[in-house]
């Protein structure tokens, strides 16, 4: 069977395959270095930390990737059938041991290193005095609720929910705490202020996702999930839904406005005025 492929043909195939693998490796490395399509800049210290861990991982996996692919290309070309005798061996325990230990150290070490950012996001609560915002997902919109001057969340009732008549969260008008609750389809936060978000959903699973914050959290039916962030760069940022939630999943978006404290205060005053 193999005699059909002449030595010359074998060399051609080996050369082509090795070349393709090398070319693919070079192009991949170039694309990752060129960053034509890349993260948007982070707007929080936490985001910068995530980016650093990403780069660490990228460098390590990049080195392994290049070595493995080029090694593969090399053995393909070098050890094509040239009618010689093979070098007979069935294994090498020392080598097996060395590369097993090396990968354990590399992979597990990398994992441990990255846990720091996770711990900051999840094990620590929000700083005291954080601004609280409740985020509610529903097919296919986000609503953001601020507790208002009394600092208390008003009661909501499922049977009162009516997006069409302007009560998307089902605030109970008979509850005094609900009267001053601000419900907005977009999210405003002051720059440099710790914000604690309470993420929930009315119907199916959604996922609150702001790229610039490097933050994503599922909104799970029946749960209220706390996250916190501190955005330091003013601007308009898109909020997208990252968990399949139905036919309008792709257009379930809103905006996060990171503004100065003064602008934030003004926005809150305007919202309160509109409630009257």
């Amino acid at each position: 069977m193999h005699r059909k492929i002449s030595e010359k043909g074998s060399a051609a195939i080996a050369f082509c395959l090795a070349l393709i693998i090398v070319a693919f490796t070079v192009i991949t490395v170039y694309m990752f270095a060129a960053k034509s399509w890349w993260f948007p800049p982070a707007i929080s210290a936490f985001g910068t930390q995530i980016d650093a861990q990403f780069h660490r991982t990228l460098v390590i996996t990049g080195i392994v990737f290049v070595l493995a692919q080029l090694g593969l290309a090399w053995v393909i070309f070098r050890y094509r059938d040239q009618g010689r005798k093979v070098e007979f061996f069935e294994g090498n325990s020392t080598l097996e041991f060395v590369w097993t230990v090396a990968t354990v150290v590399l992979f597990v070490g990398l994992g441990l290193y990255g846990e720091h950012a996770w711990a900051e996001a999840h094990f620590q609560g929000a700083a005291p005095g954080a601004l609280q915002v409740e985020i509610t997902g529903q097919q296919f919109a986000w609503n953001f609720r601020y507790a208002g001057p009394d600092g208390k969340w008003g009661q909501t009732k499922p049977e009162l929910v009516s997006a069409s008549s302007g009560n998307p969260l089902g605030l109970d008008p008979r509850d005094p705490a609900a009267k001053d609750d601000i419900v907005s389809p977009t999210m405003y936060v002051p720059e440099g202020r710790e914000v604690e978000v309470l993420i929930r959903t009315q119907d199916v699973t959604h996922s609150f996702y702001v790229r610039e914050l490097r933050l994503k959290q599922d909104a799970v039916p029946g749960m209220v999930i706390h996250m916190h962030f501190n955005a330091t760069v003013p601007g308009e940022y898109e909020i997208a839904c990252a968990e399949l939630c139905g036919l309008g999943h792709y257009r379930m978006r809103s905006f996060l406005y990171v503004v100065s404290q003064a602008d934030y205060d003004k926005w809150i005053r305007d919202q309160e005025a509109a409630l009257q």
């Binding site: 069977m1 193999h2 492929i5 043909g9 074998s10 195939i13 080996a14 395959l17 493995a68 090694g71 593969l72 053995v75 393909i76 050890y79 094509r80 059938d81 040239q82 009618g83 010689r84 005798k85 093979v86 070098e87 007979f88 061996f89 294994g91 090498n92 080598l95 097996e96 590369w99 097993t100 990968t103 354990v104 992979f107 597990v108």
Partner: peptide, 24 residues
């Protein structure tokens, strides 16, 4: 950790090819 046995397999595939007479 599960990446480790996967890496071992890759190393061993390269080890199998090392010194071979590959028929394409």
């Amino acid at each position: 950790t599960i990446g480790v046995p996967s890496a071992i397999k890759t190393f061993n595939w390269l080890g199998t090819l090392w010194g071979a007479q590959i028929r394409f």
